[in-house]
């Protein structure tokens, strides 16, 4: 066999279990990987359920698992086949898990779609930091905000609704992004309407 054998399968003595069509398909799919999202890579609609995802994965694995190509040891082709199937596995791994899938969909439907085509698990350190931020926000992230909020809580205890509303609104002035304060405000305003006094 001469060294200049082209990697597209033409003119080669291919074994029965490798077809030129599949070889070509590998090259085509591998070329478009970096512009595709996981749904496109698995060839499923974005509302696919778990059964469809599994069936699609199984069908792709039948034709494109690297073990299919052991009798075609052309280095450039092997590199593409591996790159393709690694991405197929990655897509399957994310889409078959509901939580990961939700995170992924949020990423690709947002403004930074091109950057979010590959899913990456939030680091454990980041997760801890997010949890800590969450806890802090509930009480206030600025000292003035915290103080007003504390006064509001005391007013709530004493059912002094007007005062509570005043204090939370002040807290929100200091922390306009604090969603917990805003939620508490609606709660207190509702209670004021029902409760009556002040």
């Amino acid at each position: 066999m001469n060294d200049q054998t082209p990697p597209d399968g033409s003119g080669l003595d291919l074994p029965d279990n490798i077809s030129p069509e599949i070889l070509a398909a590998v090259e085509i799919k591998a070329a478009s990987l970096d512009e595709s999202d996981y749904f496109q890579i698995l060839e499923v609609p974005t509302d696919a359920d778990q059964h469809q995802i599994k069936d699609a994965y199984r069908a792709l694995a039948r034709d494109f698992h690297p073990d299919c190509f052991r009798n075609f040891p052309v280095p450039e082709f092997q590199a593409q086949a591996n790159k393709l199937f690694k991405r197929i596995n990655e897509a399957y791994f994310v889409l078959r898990d509901d939580a990961k899938r939700a995170q992924y969909v949020a990423g690709i439907t947002g403004p930074q779609r091109e950057k979010k085509l590959r899913w990456s698990d939030e680091s454990e350190a980041q997760k801890q930091a997010a949890k800590r931020r969450n806890t802090l926000e509930r009480m206030g992230t600025t000292s003035q905000g915290r103080d007003c909020y504390q006064l509001a809580l005391r007013a709530i205890e004493g059912k002094r609704w007007a005062e509570a509303v005043r204090q939370i609104k002040m807290a929100i002035l200091y922390e306009p992004q604090n969603e917990y304060f805003k939620e508490k405000l609606s709660e207190v305003e509702a209670a004021a309407k029902n409760g009556g006094n002040g």
Binding site: N82, K86, N89, E90, F93, S120, D121, E124
Partner: peptide, 24 residues
Amino acid sequence: GTVGGFTEKIIERNTPIPIEQSKT
């Protein structure tokens, strides 16, 4: 391995192979 005697997960067990995962 990261600082302080901790580790960060890069490829979870039971992930289908071949696979590639990155973290920054």
